[in-house]
Amino acid sequence: MNLENIPSDQPVLIAGPTASGKSALALKIAQSGGGVIINADASQVYDCWRVVTARPSEADESCAPHALYGHHAYDATYSAGHWLREVTPLLAGPQRPIIVGGTGLYFLALTEGMAEIPPTPPQVRAEADTLTLDQLTQLLDARTAARIDMRNRARVQRAWEVLRATERPLADWQDETPAPVLPLDKCSALAVLPDKNSLEARIRQRFSRMIASGALDEARAMRSRYDPALPSCKAIGVPELMGFLDGRLTLDQAQEDASVATRQYAKRQRTWLRSRMGDWTKVDLSP
């Protein structure tokens, strides 16, 4: 795409599925027109996974300022609300914000506003943890179900917890959302949607690149602290690498399982982008 068409006086938002090239685009924009690259990916906030979650490399970070990457411990509690509170002051900083990531909920919270829902009591969360995804799904109202990815346990569980704790559906809270921090008409919003075949080719190569770049070393360093219930340990590639280290999977099996999980995740992200970000400028970075 022609970077000259992006106004230099507006924040830039770049959303896209995993392995779509959005981080490389953010770096190009920062190098050509200046700005600070800000993370909008839920997995990349944790300090334990640089390679596995494809966080910017140290070389990339030396080329442009970066923020909100790897700044929380592996077991820290983190949500869209935490992210919104952290990103808001950066919007008024001295450098143009270039916000990039694959967590669509973060972008919607930023550009459409976020409901002020009371914190979930620990006992409600503990109860939710004992239920299966099907059980959680069956208890949700139709309006809320239509607004979230019903195959994403974290999103479904959050909606169930809100209903259980407040006795009001998540959709009701969302309908009372305050004004957004950054409306779409005040920024350049880009949705990276590469050709499906090109994206799948990138995904097939992703795990091999991770291994070559030190993903196994990251997994070994986290092995004693690994907890599959933690959001940080649910990043694609982490369960598969732990399966290999535990002897349950060969490296080829781990690669195949990770590739399948990545393709499924990318498909959900593409669907989200097309359904929830219709007003964003579509960008195809396929060669």
Score class of each variant (00 low, 15 high):
Ala109Gly: 11
Leu136Cys: 03
Arg248Lys: 09
Pro11Gly: 11
Gln269Trp: 13
Tyr74Arg: 04
Ile29Pro: 11
Leu193Arg: 08
Thr103Tyr: 02
Pro122His: 00
Pro287Val: 11
Thr137Tyr: 08
Glu58Gly: 01
Ala26Lys: 09
Cys233Glu: 03
Ser23Leu: 01
Glu61Leu: 08
Val45Trp: 02
Ser259Gln: 07
Arg276Ala: 04
Ser62Asn: 03
Ser232Cys: 13
Asp47Phe: 00
Thr103Gln: 00
Asp246Lys: 05
Gly33Thr: 09
Ala59Arg: 12
Asp149His: 12
Pro89His: 06
Leu139Lys: 05
Ala254Asn: 05
Pro118Thr: 09
Asn2Ala: 07
Arg55Val: 00
Pro194Lys: 05
Gln31Phe: 08
Ala24Met: 13
Trp160Ser: 02
Arg96Pro: 06
Pro97Val: 10
Thr166Ala: 04
His82Pro: 14
Leu3His: 07
His82Asp: 14
Pro194Ser: 05
Asp227Gly: 09
Asp195Trp: 03
Glu240Gly: 12
Ala142Met: 14
Thr177Asp: 12
Asn5Thr: 11
Ala40Cys: 02
Leu108Asp: 09
Arg263Asn: 14
Met222Phe: 04
Arg168Lys: 15
Pro89Arg: 00
Leu273Trp: 11
Tyr226Ala: 04
Leu90Asn: 06
Asp75Lys: 00
Gly35His: 03
Gly237Pro: 01
Glu218Arg: 10
Val156Glu: 01
Asp252Leu: 13
Ser208Ala: 04
Gly102Ile: 10
Asp257Thr: 03
His66Asn: 09
Leu110Phe: 03
Leu108Val: 15
Ile117Ser: 04
Pro194Val: 15
Pro183Val: 14
Met114Lys: 10
Val124Cys: 04
Ala189Asn: 10
Ala258Leu: 04
Tyr106Trp: 06
Asn152Ala: 15
Ile236Trp: 11
Asp257Asn: 09
Leu184Trp: 13
Lys186His: 15
Pro119Ser: 02
Leu110Pro: 06
Arg268Asn: 06
Gln135Asp: 00
Thr53Leu: 02
Asp60Gly: 10
Leu140Gly: 08
Leu199Arg: 07
Gly113Asn: 02
Pro17Asp: 07
Asp284Leu: 06
Glu86Asn: 05
Asp185Met: 01
Leu84Met: 11
Glu240Asn: 05
Pro239Gly: 13
Val87Ala: 12
Val283Met: 06
Asn39Leu: 14
Ser286Gly: 09
Lys234Phe: 07
Asp172Thr: 15
Gln174Lys: 06
Leu170Gln: 11
Ala212Phe: 05
Asn39Trp: 11
Val181Leu: 02
Gly113Tyr: 06
Leu163Arg: 12
Thr281Val: 05
Thr111Glu: 08
Leu25Val: 04
Arg223Trp: 02
Lys267Gly: 11
Trp280Gln: 06
Trp272Pro: 11
Leu84Gly: 10
Ala26Asn: 02
Gln205Glu: 10
Phe107Trp: 08
Ile99Thr: 12
Lys196Ser: 15
Arg153Lys: 07
Arg204Glu: 15
Ala42Trp: 12
